[in-house]
C-alpha cells in the first residue's frame, strides 16, 4: 500500500516538475509547482511526518505559492518567449546533471545497503527533530531567524528607496 501510494505521488511530483519547465505560461508553471508541493507533502505523510506535511501545505502551497500566483496576476505576465536554449546548456549541462544525480543516487543506495531498507525503518519522528532543534541548536536557530528578519527589513528598505526616488522624479 505504501509503495503504491509512493509511486503514484512520486510520479505526480516528477510530472509536475517537468510540466513546470515545459509550460510557457507563468501561471501554469506556478500551478505545476503547487502540484509538486502537494505531492511532496503526501510523501512526507507516507514517511510518518504529519506535522511536516501539514506545514508544507500551509506554508509552501498555501502562502508562498499564493504569493507567486498573486504576483503573476498583478503583473499580468504574458507568455514567455521561447528561445532555443544555449548550446552550452545542452552539451555540458544535461550530462553534468545526470552525473551528479548518478553519484548521489549511488551513495544513498550504498548507505542503505542497496535499497534493502524498508520505508518506515529508522525514521526519526518530528518530535525528536524539533527537540534537537529547540534544545541543542536553539542559538543557531534563533540567529537564523534574525538573519531572515534582516533580509525582510532589507527588502522593505530597498523597495522604499525606489518608491521615494520615483515620486521625486515624477
Amino acid at each position: 500500500m505504501h509503495l503504491v501510494l509512493f509511486l503514484i505521488f512520486a510520479g505526480l511530483c516528477l510530472a509536475g516538475a517537468i510540466n513546470l519547465l515545459l509550460q510557457s505560461h507563468p501561471i501554469n508553471s506556478a500551478l505545476s509547482l503547487v502540484v509538486v508541493m502537494i505531492a511532496l507533502a503526501v510523501l512526507y505523510l507516507l514517511l510518518g511526518a504529519e506535522f511536516l506535511a501539514a506545514a508544507q501545505i500551509i506554508v509552501y502551497s498555501g502562502a508562498i505559492m499564493v504569493l507567486f500566483v498573486f504576483v503573476v496576476m498583478l503583473l499580468n505576465a504574458g507568455r514567455e518567449e521561447r528561445t532555443l536554449g544555449s548550446k552550452v546548456a545542452k552539451t555540458l549541462g544535461f550530462p553534468a546533471v545526470v552525473a551528479v544525480m548518478g553519484v548521489l543516487a549511488t551513495i544513498i543506495l550504498h548507505l542503505q545497503g542497496m535499497g534493502a531498507a524498508a520505508i518506515n525503518q529508522g525514521l526519526i519522528p518530528t518530535e525528536e527533530l524539533s527537540r534537537v532543534l529547540f534544545h541543542e541548536l536553539l542559538l543557531p536557530f534563533e540567529i537564523t531567524s534574525i538573519l531572515i528578519l534582516i533580509a525582510i527589513l532589507g527588502a522593505v528598505a530597498l523597495a522604499r528607496q525606489e518608491g521615494s526616488e520615483r515620486s521625486v522624479t515624477k
Binding site: 501561471i27 504529519e50 501539514a54 501545505i57 502551497s61 498555501g62 499564493v66 500566483v69 498573486f70 503573476v72
Partner: peptide, 25 residues
C-alpha cells in the same frame, strides 16, 4: 479522526484561496 486535524483545516482553508484567485484572473 486524525491527530493533525486542526492543521488540515488550516491547510485546506489556505488552499481555497486558489479558487478565488484563479477565478478572477
Amino acid at each position: 479522526n486524525i491527530n493533525i486535524g486542526l492543521l488540515v483545516v488550516l491547510g485546506l482553508t489556505s488552499m481555497g484561496v486558489y479558487g478565488i484567485a484563479l477565478a478572477g484572473w
